[in-house]
Design a protein around this nucleic acid. Sequence first.
DNA 1: ACAAAAGTGTTGTGCATACACCCATGG
DNA 2: CCATGGGTGTATGCACAACACTTTTGT
Lengths: 231, 231
Amino acid sequence: MSNNSRYISSLVAVDCLIFGFQDQTLKVLLIKRNLKPYQNEWSLMGGFLQNKESAEIAAARVLTELTGLTGVSMEQIKTFSKVYRDPTERTISIVYSSLIDINKFEAQLNHEYEAQWFTLKELPKLIFDHEDMVEEGRNFLRKKAALQPILFELLAEKFTIPQIQQLYEEVFEATFDKRNFRRKLLGSILLEKLDEKDKLSSKKGAFYYRLDKQTKHYNFSILLNLAYSSL
Amino acid sequence: MSNNSRYISSLVAVDCLIFGFQDQTLKVLLIKRNLKPYQNEWSLMGGFLQNKESAEIAAARVLTELTGLTGVSMEQIKTFSKVYRDPTERTISIVYSSLIDINKFEAQLNHEYEAQWFTLKELPKLIFDHEDMVEEGRNFLRKKAALQPILFELLAEKFTIPQIQQLYEEVFEATFDKRNFRRKLLGSILLEKLDEKDKLSSKKGAFYYRLDKQTKHYNFSILLNLAYSSL
DNA sequence: ACAAAAGTGTTGTGCATACACCCATGG
DNA sequence: CCATGGGTGTATGCACAACACTTTTGT
């Protein structure tokens, strides 16, 4: 099958849906476009596929460009291809998502871009179909989090149990019993309890934990039934 | 962001991963390419995105072209974009999957294409990265089937319980206790028992069932724990 | 002293699993 | 009459959900 005028040759973009967790809230990283058209409107950070680049590589490049972070794992969410999704030019966009520890990010932010974290409830209007992208990403996050302990990537190295619980409650838009949550969590994942306490959110203070070094073997049927209703 | 020589303008293809169920076996529909290069090699049925066409529309068009079927629901599986996946020309491909009742298909097959059903175990060598596509599709099918009663789309309007069980066993590559399976199934989905029996696979015969008309409210935590291990 | 969040155990129930025998029929 | 696959019921254990009180400490 060779090139033929009936077939379009389309620009292919990648867009990065970057989730972080801050102030007990799940957030997405958006940038304000600094070029026309749609100047000053908010969007996901994206970029076009370059010549000798797979979409995975392109997505990683875009992420690094914005945040300075490398080696972050990214997952393909979905490809968007509506004909007029970008009114100025026919493009299709492959969306990738990543979860980052928001503090690492702050350190390395590229200030060429005007980037800002938004909670999912206070999302501004986004260009094109980027709001659909966020929605898809959110569903993806739920399914994934129900099956694998990925959400830890959103937390700093040290974290408290109440923090994790808040994160899960955010993602699933639900509230869980703290006794049951703690039991399930500790029963599924090897966590190392530290002596240090986080006293920011209570007077008593909550012990920090960190992921046990050799934690590769989690027993993660955990939280699955939470998932039932939300999937 | 306007066109720029660093950015490639790539051909965008869709490939259709069509699953069917026949002789107690899960099968995929492949075609033998009738043009060079790679003439006479097997591949998924695909086509290029046309000018005013979204990928969803293109995938539906391709499916119809091959099978004559319309209105079949299709799901986007994943987009493949390795640089040299198609050695002759840079293309990216968006894979869609559908489940069809193999009998409906037989009736309407377009014989311009040399199409053939293959079991997953006897898959021939496929062009490009099409084998990866099949693999992705299979994973997708498992996850989806664990949460939703989609597999019914593979069956004819009337089906027996043992038939469904075989189908699920195929998809999950596992065997289930028939008493438990039946109980869970009937407890989750409204099935209407018919008076008629299928005597093809046993002397006693197995009663036919069909999906209850207003079956929109299934209670499908069913089979989820089968999923645990396979997801 | 009191407010605010952290931390802790027990009990009941429903669900999944495991398991063995009878039934209907065609050859 | 027998071989083949279809169909049925029960007992056990486990994992989840529900639930209330004590601890710590900053103000």
